[in-house]
């Protein structure tokens, strides 16, 4: 798994590629932990190259969700494959977090919030 971070003054873009599982999710956890500490809580997550996510990967996002929201931020996921989306769907998370098709839609959510 690889994580690419792109940060502007207001929004943090996280591009994840490869497979996010119990082993690799530790790295993602550090990235999000740092972002929350720096109060960078408007977080766009690009899933175009994300081939697989296990519960450990989903768990990283959920464990920071409350802190992100309490600081006025949110996670917005985009470019998610149907396989990855189905895992969020089975857990009932597709109705609780923002998952959109494209980057423009994702950015629009932040423009409006």
């Amino acid at each position: 798994m690889q994580i690419l971070i792109e940060s502007d003054s207001d929004i943090l873009h996280i591009h994840i590629s490869g497979e996010l599982d119990a082993n690799s999710s530790i790295q993602l956890d550090e990235v999000i932990k740092d972002a929350v500490q720096q109060r960078k809580t408007r977080i766009l997550v690009d899933c175009r190259e994300l081939r697989y996510i296990s519960s450990a990967g989903v768990g990283v996002f959920l464990s920071h969700l409350d802190d992100v929201r309490s600081l006025g931020g949110r996670f917005v996921f985009y470019n998610m494959s149907s396989g990855v989306f189905s895992i969020f769907e089975i857990l009932g998370l597709h109705n609780m977090i923002d998952i959109v098709k494209e980057k423009t839609e994702a950015e629009k959510i932040f423009d409006e919030s």
Binding site: S55, A56, V60, L62, D66, D67, I87, I90
Partner: peptide, 17 residues
């Protein structure tokens, strides 16, 4: 799942799946 989020838990999702 709302309690898992509230309690900032990383685990507990695998068995649900």
């Amino acid at each position: 799942i709302k309690d898992i989020i509230k309690e900032k838990q990383k685990g507990g999702l695998g068995l649900k799946l």
